[in-house]
Amino acid sequence: MKNSGFAAAHLGMLIWALLIAASFSAAAQISQAIDPVLLTGLRLLVCALMFLPLLLVKGDTAMTARGLFGHATLGLLLALYFGSLFEALRYTSAVNTGTLFTLVPLLTLLFEALLVPDSSLKQRVLPMLIAAAGAVLLILKGAGPGERPSLYAVSVYGVGCLAMALYSPLSQRLKTNSFKGRGPVGMTFWNMLFGAVFLLVLCGFTGGWRSASLLTLSDVCWLIYLALFATLATFWLLHRAIGVIAPSSVISYIYLSTLFITLFHWLRRTPLPQEIIGALLVGIGMLALLLSSRRAVPATVQG
């Protein structure tokens, strides 16, 4: 692997973390009366449609039955994650779901060991644990005294976290057979299209589609912004990095996103001691992870 490809992949994921962090403020601008599953389904659909012209220009539309099944599986994992998140948020707080999400990179490492094993796996365990501990400190600053998530919420969102953890390693595994030769544009388009279909079908059963009548022009503009920058760009950067750096290293950038959100808050208030310790742990863990992934040899090289 060339150093330029390695550097570009990590720089892309740094931008990914910034875009994810900025998306929370943008998402808050959309009316809370609109069904969140419907909004996510529309975001994925808009993104897929935006990628369609580029897909046609690149001529990456050929699809085998195995490839179609693979994209449907990855799209289902996306739908499972977002569906479980919104269901869990009905019974617990964003703080609790955020804390549980810190397990996703570690679960990704487990799936990576099963699907795309390599000799550098053990080197990433300690850095990820350090970064995860820091992220937990940053997230738990908003927890109320005695606040505990319900068993139902943990179970439902736990399934979603497993789905998200499986997404990156399975993507890399499929790149070596069913998706061989398929670039980030094709991967992003088909996965998002299937994810959107599954979520919109779910809205049809739950009745969430009725809230579409509440969409205003402002909501539509923010939806397009989120689709373009918080979904389309981030998923393209994600698939661009998968195969160049290990899947667990890729998803670990969510810890850096948590740090960026905290840094944004520091612009308006004085940081708490707990936040400073958490920020330092995230920084140390991500630096160690960067160094360990630089020594690793990737299973596949992104084309």
Rank of each mutant, 00 (worst) to 15 (best):
M1A: 13
S4W: 05
A7W: 11
A8Y: 05
A8K: 10
A9N: 03
L14Q: 03
W16Y: 14
A17H: 02
L19C: 09
A21L: 02
F24N: 11
A27F: 03
I30K: 00
I34G: 07
I34F: 00
V37L: 11
V37Q: 08
R43V: 10
R43N: 07
C47P: 13
L49I: 13
L52T: 09
L52H: 02
P53T: 01
A62Y: 04
T64C: 04
L68Q: 14
L68G: 15
F69Q: 14
F69M: 15
T73I: 14
G75Y: 03
G75S: 06
L77V: 06
F82A: 08
G83T: 00
L89E: 13
L89N: 08
Y91S: 15
T92R: 11
T92C: 09
T102A: 10
L103W: 02
P105C: 05
L106H: 02
L107H: 00
T108L: 09
L109G: 01
L110E: 03
E112P: 01
P117Y: 06
P117C: 03
D118E: 08
L126F: 12
A133F: 04
A135D: 00
G142N: 04
A143D: 04
A143N: 06
P145C: 03
G146C: 00
L151S: 13
Y152R: 12
G160F: 00
G160C: 05
A163N: 07
M164Q: 13
M164I: 12
L166A: 11
S168N: 12
L170A: 11
S171W: 04
L174Y: 02
L174G: 02
L174M: 06
P184V: 04
M187Q: 14
N191K: 01
M192N: 13
M192D: 04
L193N: 02
F194M: 11
L199K: 00
F205C: 00
T206V: 08
D219K: 06
W222E: 08
W222S: 09
I224N: 06
F229V: 08
W236E: 10
W236A: 08
W236G: 06
L238K: 12
H239G: 04
I242N: 06
I245V: 15
S249P: 00
S252H: 03
L256W: 01
S257A: 15
T262N: 15
L263N: 08
H265V: 06
H265A: 15
W266C: 14
T270Q: 09
L272M: 14
E275P: 11
E275A: 15
L280R: 04
V282R: 05
L291A: 10
R294W: 09
A296C: 07
G303I: 10
